[in-house]
Write a protein that binds this DNA or RNA. Sequence first.
DNA 1: GTCATAGGCAACCTCCTGGTTGCATCTTAC
DNA 2: GTAAGATGCAACCAGGAGGTTGCCTATGAC
Lengths: 114, 114
Amino acid sequence: MSQASPIAAAQVRDAAPLFAALGDETRLRLLVRLAASGPESITHLSAESTVSRQAIKKHLDVLSKAGLVRGDRRGREHIWELEPKRFADACEYLDRISRQWDDALDRLKHFVED
Amino acid sequence: MSQASPIAAAQVRDAAPLFAALGDETRLRLLVRLAASGPESITHLSAESTVSRQAIKKHLDVLSKAGLVRGDRRGREHIWELEPKRFADACEYLDRISRQWDDALDRLKHFVED
DNA sequence: GTCATAGGCAACCTCCTGGTTGCATCTTAC
DNA sequence: GTAAGATGCAACCAGGAGGTTGCCTATGAC
């Protein structure tokens, strides 16, 4: 009887780029790094990475477009920080799919029992 | 003082393919469809899609490798169903990054105040 | 003002990914 | 056993993604 609300097509179109942004090892490492150390500049971030500064910059752009990080120019540095709300968005989305699956199984069960 | 446990490199390597599997609109639609209707065959799933049956099959393989769905051969049909546990895994992962970010900001705040 | 440092832009390359078509295989219905 | 339905497999193709190098711009230190 949980009756999760249905998932609209527009939400799928919004969620796909979000998960796509999360679906790269280098980007995930960037997020983990940011989460552990707090706001950081591009140079600092790329110093601890195996790939070039430009690669890191591209990844940050992708993450930024997905709303997962936010960049802030301070003088000649560009400081990046996490945007925790988007993480919650993604979580909620997954949770809704899960609940709808549970509902579907419940319906199947009742259908069989009738 | 929440002190979220650190995120290991191995977990990043595990999580990236999981999110990558979620990061495609066609695949997300498949998951939403499965969640709404319960277990379904490939032919049924592709009937409601704009892309070919083979494309759907490939996507199901990707989702399966990521552990998000499970396929079961029944006679000449191949029935696919959701694997809700993986959704919870992804959620938990995102949650851990978020909490670590909160910790980092707390530490920064205390550092400034000292 | 000059120089080093931080960052952005653009061109380029390679490989993976999403998609297709064509054909083979396996089941079930009759 | 034969035909139709459901699926798997392989080859192929176009475009995008991740990465690199080279060069330009802007800012801060001195």
